[in-house]
């Protein structure tokens, strides 16, 4: 009860605060529409069509770029983590690009992939892959030494130890990396939808609503993007709890 009750109370408080701000006219109603108006306009956009399409496009792009990032980041991270000297060699480069704002790479990726779906997905996948790789490598490098020795004394060779111990030891950290990766992919996709020749997606919808002064809709789409990010994060938290039942034990 408390797990749902208290956060719900907080959310209600936020909406009341918003409503209060509208009532005392803190800002121009064009800039700050009421929660009711936001709800109405967003529901209208959802019911009459394009917003569902936008939401679906953003979800698809995020999921595809996340999958590409995972397919590259997880195996590469494990392989690099298993050879610490090699990882130390690559660490600076990985860290550097991990810290580089992915949005700064848009122009470069536009040259490489042209104006289209490919570029958005490539930038998002690039950013997410580095986060996932970094976490996977650290998960492997932080594997309990005793467990590796135990496998070794029981007759496991290098490859065996990799699949029977290192991958499992790294799994909690890999899932943490995937959770950060999917959030980052969403951030990059939404920005890319605003600026890289897009006609749909939540990012596009926000910026169009803003330019048309449909502020109710703009707020609604922002919340929709927020809900999407929150749900993706929640999904991975549940996955971590269910799948990595041994974590921290």
């Amino acid at each position: 009860m408390r797990a749902v009750g208290l956060p719900a109370l907080g959310a209600l408080g936020f909406i009341l605060l918003w409503w209060g701000a509208v009532l005392v006219e803190v800002a121009d109603p064009v800039l700050l529409p009421s929660p009711a108006e936001t709800w109405r306009e967003t529901m209208h956009a959802l019911n009459t069509g394009p917003l569902w399409h936008d939401l679906w496009q953003t979800v698809q792009r995020t999921v595809v770029s996340f999958l590409v990032a995972s397919l590259i980041g997880v195996p590469l991270g494990i392989a690099l983590g298993a050879q610490e000297r090699l990882y130390r060699t690559c660490e600076f480069v990985v860290d550097f690009f991990r810290s580089t704002p992915a949005s700064a790479l848009f122009p470069l990726f536009l040259i490489l992939f042209g104006v289209g779906e490919g570029t958005k997905i490539a930038v998002a996948a690039f950013g997410a892959a580095l986060v996932i790789l970094f976490n996977a490598a650290y998960g492997v490098m932080n594997a309990r030494r005793t467990r590796i020795l135990a496998a070794q004394v029981m007759g496991a060779g290098r490859v065996r130890i990799m699949f029977d111990v290192l991958v499992w030891e790294a799994t909690p950290q890999i899932l943490v990396g995937m959770r950060s990766g999917v959030s980052l992919a969403l951030v990059i996709i939404v920005v890319a939808e605003m600026f890289i020749g897009s006609t749909d997606g939540l990012g596009q919808r926000v910026i169009v609503a803003q330019s048309l002064f449909e502020s109710g809709l703009m707020y609604g789409v922002i919340f929709l993007a927020g809900a999407l990010g929150y749900l993706l994060n929640l999904l991975f938290l549940i996955l971590e709890k269910q799948f990595v039942h041994w974590a921290g034990k």
């Binding site: 005793t146 467990r147 020795l149 135990a150 499992w168 799994t171 041994w246």
Partner: peptide, 16 residues
């Protein structure tokens, strides 16, 4: 064939 029992059983067993 050798067997080995570690002091730290928590870290020697495979918890998965």
């Amino acid at each position: 064939r050798v067997g080995y029992v570690f002091q730290n059983y928590r870290e020697a067993l495979f918890p998965w």
